[in-house]
């Protein structure tokens, strides 16, 4: 398992990847963000969670620095005990939420992924 971001031909990187990047640029390669650490841009603890989601659900938007190019991601936190600016690293989790409990077709997407853990 990797945490794949996509680099486009104009040098920009997004997570997740899209068929076309910012300004219509074409994807050229993927980058595994799980090998990097990131900084918390902002975070929240959500207490009104949908079916199949842990309660409370700690979430953060984090920013990775990939050779000078910054790329943001959103994801669960391993703990609610964080501050904006904290450094975190991705840790792999088998199942981030119960695939069949919500409205989304279970087959239509992946359910494993990464939580962010303070370093």
């Amino acid at each position: 398992m990797t945490m794949e971001a996509t680099r486009y031909d104009d040098g920009s990187i997004t997570y997740p990847g899209h068929p076309r990047g910012p300004g219509g640029s074409e994807p050229v390669e993927t980058i595994d963000l799980s090998e990097y650490t990131a900084e918390i841009v902002t975070w929240t603890t959500s207490t009104a969670t949908p079916p199949g989601v842990r309660e409370p659900n700690h979430l953060a938007i984090v920013e990775f620095d990939v050779e000078g190019e910054s790329v943001r991601a959103i994801g669960q936190l391993t703990t609610g005990d964080v501050e904006t600016g904290d450094e975190v690293r991705p840790v792999y989790v088998d199942e981030l939420r119960d695939p069949g409990a919500g409205i989304r077709e279970p087959e239509s997407q992946a359910w494993d992924g990464y939580r962010f853990e303070p370093v």
Binding site: P19, R20, G21, P22, G23, R104, E105, S108
Partner: peptide, 20 residues
């Protein structure tokens, strides 16, 4: 798309996905 797949807002996804 919501009833079949549980994915709504597909027009917004498309605008993003094709860089529009």
């Amino acid at each position: 798309s919501g009833e079949f797949e549980g994915q709504t807002g597909v027009m917004n996804a498309l605008v993003h996905d094709i860089g529009a």
